[in-house]
Amino acid sequence: MKKVYKPVLTVSFTAAILFAGIASVPAVNEELVEKFRVHVEKGEAPDSGKVIYPPDKRVS
């Protein structure tokens, strides 16, 4: 297997949050709220992501 090269990311997530917290105006972004109002297309996505829900129909 090839040797994996991973660049080290120097700025931590916390630092990024602090930076963004200072740089941005902490207001509700209505555009994003609207963007998150999503409609799921059936059959395209699994029911539960990375967990398994109990069966609700005959288990064949």
Partner: peptide
């Protein structure tokens, strides 16, 4: 999101950092 924000911080693309931080906050 932490990976994405770190990636843009590394690139010093502050606009994107703010954008994705906003998304994180919205979530």
């Amino acid at each position: 999101l932490p990976g994405i924000i770190d990636y843009y911080s590394e690139k010093e693309d502050h606009e994107k950092v703010i954008h994705y931080y906003d998304q994180w906050r919205e979530l």
